[in-house]
């Protein structure tokens, strides 16, 4: 990580995305304001070339929405996404097609991420030609290369998704994403649905492909073990905001934010001798519709001070590459 040139590939500035809830008739009559799920609540983040940045957080913290907003599946409410000098949030159609091609995604569910009515070969063939990656003549060779790259047999091309296991489907998903020569790859819980032995295979594959293709990966996961293995840097998300950002070593060995500490403490240790009986944290994630005032973690924080309930902390740089949104670290 340290010797890599820190060229910024994607610069995200103050990104917001919320999903309005439909108002009930009573709300309408009583003129209550319409509510919205604040999935992404003001995120600024630089993603460097060739790095693997992991985004961790509990379900409902907005990490998937954040990824989908970056990649233009959702239109951002406000904020900028600067990808190689272009703002994806306001790009014309022709340039957006190229930009989109360079940002690809691997999905979570190996069973719903492939079109059940299309053979693997047809699927790859279609995208290769759509994005003019190769000519019709070269397509078959290219498809074989792609399948070989993810360690699948050639006869895979004629077969349909239902004929494959979860791990094989995830390989196919990776081949689909890499077929169009992307620069930036989002892996949204890409190994969460897989068994441990298969998960390790896919992690290895992703790592070697990153090196050979010069990929930048945004790795979204709730699995702190997997993240520790694959990530260069880690961003911890809580209720639509990033609350800690640092290198993997920094975050895992000296976490700053109380929430990060709790997350790491909650992780079941494999050592049966360590059976503590007090849960690290009580209660659940508050609803992203009514985000608590002040620090958003104040309602669950074990060391919350009175001002935490009123003032929202900034994002403080604690040392090189390691920042945190907690009043304790105010400069």
């Amino acid at each position: 990580m340290s010797d890599k040139a820190q060229n910024i590939l994607i610069k995200i500035q103050n990104l917001h995305k919320s999903f309005p809830l439909s108002r009930s008739l009573t709300d309408f009559v009583l003129r209550r304001p319409s509510k919205a799920v604040k999935a992404v609540d003001g995120i600024s983040l630089d993603i460097f070339e060739n790095e693997t940045l992991a985004l961790v957080g509990e379900s409902g913290c907005g990490k998937s929405s954040f990824a989908r907003t970056i990649i233009n599946l959702y239109k951002p409410d406000s904020g900028d996404i600067i990808f190689k000098g272009n703002n994806l949030a306001s790009l014309d159609k022709a340039n957006l097609k190229t930009a989109k091609r360079e940002c690809q995604m691997i999905f979570q569910d190996p069973y719903s991420s492939l079109n059940p009515r299309m053979s693997i070969g047809d699927m790859l063939h279609e995208e290769l030609l759509y994005h003019h990656i190769c000519s019709k003549k070269e397509a078959q060779t290219k498809i074989n290369e792609l399948l070989d790259m993810v360690n699948l047999n050639k006869d895979t091309a004629e077969r349909f998704p239902s004929e494959f296991s979860g791990g094989q489907r995830q390989r196919i998903g990776i081949a689909r994403a890499l077929a169009v020569n992307p620069k930036f790859l989002i892996a949204d819980e890409a190994v969460s649905a897989l068994d441990i032995s298969i998960q390790a295979q896919i992690l290895h594959l992703l790592q070697s492909l990153q090196r050979s293709h010069g990929l930048t990966i945004l790795f979204i996961s709730h699995d702190l073990r997997v993240v520790h293995y694959i990530a260069d840097r880690v961003a911890v998300m809580y209720l639509g905001k990033i609350i800690e950002l640092g290198t993997t070593d920094q975050v895992y060995t000296s976490p700053l934010h109380p929430y990060t500490k709790i997350l790491l403490d909650s992780l079941p240790s494999v050592d049966p001798r360590k059976k503590s009986s007090v849960p690290a944290i009580e209660g659940n994630l508050p609803s992203p519709i009514d985000i608590p005032p002040g620090c958003r973690f104040s309602t669950r924080c074990p060391n919350a001070k009175p001002h935490c309930f009123n003032d929202e902390p900034g994002f403080y740089k604690v040392n090189d590459d390691h920042s945190c949104a907690c009043h304790e670290y105010i400069a």
């Binding site: 957006l96 989109k100 690809q104 991420s113």
Partner: peptide, 13 residues
């Protein structure tokens, strides 16, 4: 809402 439709959108189809 299936992921393969999202995948098609990501491919800028």
């Amino acid at each position: 809402n299936a992921e393969y439709v999202e995948a098609a959108k990501v491919l800028a189809y």
